[in-house]
Simulated assay, not measured.
Amino acid sequence: MTTQNIYQQAVYDMYAAIAGAAAIKTIKAQYNAVIEGRTETHEADIYWEFTDGDIIYKILIQAKEQVSLGELFSFLRIVRDIPGQVMGVIVTQPVYKKDVKDMAANAGIILYELLAPLTAGIWEPVISNIRINVDAAWVKAAKEQAGLGDEMIQMNANPKYTFLYDENGNCVDSVQGVFDYYGKERNSAGTEQEKIVHSFAEPVFLQTHHEMVPFIKLDNITFDLEFVNANQMPGEEMLGQVFEKTLKYFGH
């Protein structure tokens, strides 16, 4: 893919991601759209309407290899000719001119800046299907000793902030650290998804939110690991950022 069309491809990836964005209530999505404005009709690479339940937001997305002040003014005129809560998005190469950046920020236009992909692929580890498995027998004995019966013991559900401790209560690692270890060890040797079962040579514990059982023993951590090409435009991620920036701009 050349630098002349990575922006169009990124826009198409965003459009393709709309159908899978289950968390966003889409009203209308059009590719190569023609939109009725107050004074005339306009064209856009993507026209997207979604709602938060109360307000309907309208997004115009255009791909441009370069953005000048003149092009920004023309796009702003289109955005302002469409009634409602309208946000403009231009997918383009990095913009270094301060006047262009300032005008876009003040006018409610997102400049989604992309670097041209490198010739060689950049492969990044992706973790999914995470299961943190406790030592069931150890936990049962600890609960019986504390007189808790079948009472549930809550743990931190976010792996990025789940730390691992030794028998003396010293922090020795984190769940994210385990993920990082395998990401570096495999070093994108292949792109096939791999099921990882990580066991521990020494007893390892998780901190809980329970006063009587502050730590529970861990058995293993299982997860799926695969490597994805970072040069492939992540349409879902780009779309999510546009969604979040739109709500933030309009004060939600």
Rank of each mutant, 00 (worst) to 15 (best):
V95Q: 13
S74F: 04
N231E: 12
A23H: 09
K217L: 12
Y181K: 10
E244H: 12
E226L: 15
G169D: 05
A16D: 10
A146R: 08
P214H: 11
L72F: 11
Y249A: 14
A16T: 09
H42S: 04
L76C: 11
E244N: 14
T92W: 08
Y31Q: 10
A29G: 08
F227P: 06
G240I: 02
Q8T: 05
I55Q: 10
R131I: 03
Q8C: 03
A201G: 12
Q241W: 10
P125G: 00
F73V: 11
I61T: 02
A230D: 12
N220P: 00
V228T: 12
T162L: 10
R38Q: 04
A230Q: 12
N168I: 02
F223K: 04
E236N: 15
M238G: 13
P94E: 08
I56L: 11
Y181V: 03
I27H: 05
E71K: 06
G177N: 09
M155G: 03
M238W: 09
S188V: 13
G108L: 08
A201I: 15
N129P: 00
K248N: 05
A21K: 01
M103R: 08
K58V: 02
Y7G: 00
M87T: 15
A22Y: 06
N106E: 10
Y182F: 13
H198P: 01
Q232P: 01
F75Q: 08
N168T: 09
I110V: 14
D99G: 07
P83Y: 01
S174H: 00
A23V: 05
Y12I: 11
N220G: 03
A16Y: 01
E211Q: 14
A21D: 06
I56R: 04
E65D: 01
T162G: 01
E43I: 01
V11S: 04
I61Q: 03
I153G: 03
K101Q: 14
A104P: 03
L60E: 12
F227Y: 14
Q4D: 09
L247G: 04
A136C: 00
V79R: 15
G20R: 08
Q241G: 07
I27F: 00
R80N: 15
